[in-house]
Design a protein around this nucleic acid. Structure first.
Length: 330
RNA sequence: GGCUCGGUGGCAGAGUGGUAAUGCAGCGGAUUGCAAAUCCGUCAACGCCGGUUCGAUUCCGACCCGAGCCU
């Protein structure tokens, strides 16, 4: 069997990129970015674009919409391609739905005509989402039962799948084999994160200052002046870009803008932590206030309640131990 | 020094003689094609001391603090 793909996860500003670069060099690997903002050209400073080369960075125009499904497909191709060249693919990033789409897979639902979504959103503007939730309940009660009446995006998705395919979303999802919580042997998932929340917040704050100093405002201004971009696009909704965009429109002062970016970034980190806490079989790599990896047993592979490693191949064990060893020296 | 207005949760800000909206932040959660998105849940307050009252955050008085005006 092929060795697993290393997947390095973690909240924003946790230091993933620096570690990833070291891993890439140490393992003759190639990095694949798992980042929903970095896919867009023009998002560099505010998206913390790393200097070291990554795949799947700057591959779309900000006017386009990139999706988790696009990512899963392209990342898979990328992994195959890298392996075909005899190198090791390493995934790095914090877009957890992208990781999930790649590792756990998405159901094979056909593309939906964007016009359908547009009409649903138009309908929602006049009727409100709870009304659409009700309509969903008539055609797809299973999906509706799992969604709050205000959950705009997911109600929209369920509705557009039904209208576009004539088949309820919940049925599409039943076709696939049930998702297991078992660790996927094809991926070795590691999370890098400061042990203390306060440390992460301090890192976020420091990095944000650097972004503003490096010209974040100018970067967003360039996007703003294109004239064809708007706040409904994912690229413009990204943390930092959205707030600076509003600042450019005169909605608030620069100090308030900076404060809002800071808050939004912390909130992003929190949501990422929520994903990570329930991620199956995740190896936690905790760091101290100086960014050094803590040597305690907490850094060892977790989730091994039973002897899951007993039947692991020696190649796999070697792979793991090399990662762990490298990380101790980080 | 005098007068006026004001002091409600971390912040902003309603309100009532029977212990108090809401927004933001914080914290927790969800997450199958926009996910750095979207949504849900939740903690937490009436400056201080007396008085009136069955009962005061709400009424009265003193005091403290803040803003403004006056001398």
């Amino acid at each position: 069997m092929t060795e697993p793909v290393l997947a390095l996860m973690g909240p924003t500003a946790s230091g993933k990129s620096a570690l990833a670069e070291q891993l890439a060099i140490a393992f003759e690997g190639e990095l694949i970015s798992v980042d929903s903002a970095l896919v867009y050209r023009g998002l560099s400073i505010g998206a913390a674009k790393p200097d070291y080369p990554h795949h799947l960075v700057h591959i779309r125009d900000p006017a386009q919409v990139y999706t988790a499904a696009d990512f899963a497909r392209e990342a898979k191709d990328c992994i195959d391609d890298i392996r075909a060249r005899g190198r090791r693919p390493i995934l790095v990033g914090g877009s957890m739905l992208y990781f999930r789409a790649l590792i756990q897979g998405l159901d094979d639902i056909p593309d939906i005509d964007p016009a359908i979504r547009a009409s649903i959103e138009a309908q929602a503007r006049v009727q409100g989402w709870p009304a659409l939730h009700q309509q969903l309940a008539e055609v797809d009660p299973a999906a509706a039962a799992q969604l709050h009446p205000n959950h705009s995006q997911r109600i929209c998705r369920a509705l557009e799948v039904f209208r576009g395919t004539g088949k309820p979303l919940s049925e599409w999802q039943q076709n696939a084999e049930p998702r297991s919580a078992e660790p996927d042997p094809d991926y070795e998932c590691i999370a890098l994160c400061p042990e203390q929340r306060a440390t992460l917040h301090a890192r976020i704050e420091r990095r944000l200052e650097g972004m503003f100093d490096a010209g974040l405002i100018d970067e967003v201004t360039a996007l703003y002046q294109r004239g064809d971009l708007h706040t409904d696009l994912p690229a413009v909704r990204a943390v930092g870009y959205r707030q600076v965009w509003s600042f450019l429109q005169g909605e608030f002062s620069l100090p308030e803008c900076r404060e809002r970016v800071l808050i939004a970034t912390r909130q992003l980190a929190k949501r990422q932590m929520t994903w990570l806490r329930s991620w199956p079989s995740l190896g936690w790599v905790l760091t101290d206030a100086q960014g050094r990896i803590l040597p305690s047993e907490k850094t060892a592979e977790s989730g091994g309640e039973t002897g899951t490693a007993t039947d692991a191949s020696s190649a796999e064990k070697l792979w793991k131990s090399r990662i762990m060893q490298l990380m101790r020296n980080f």
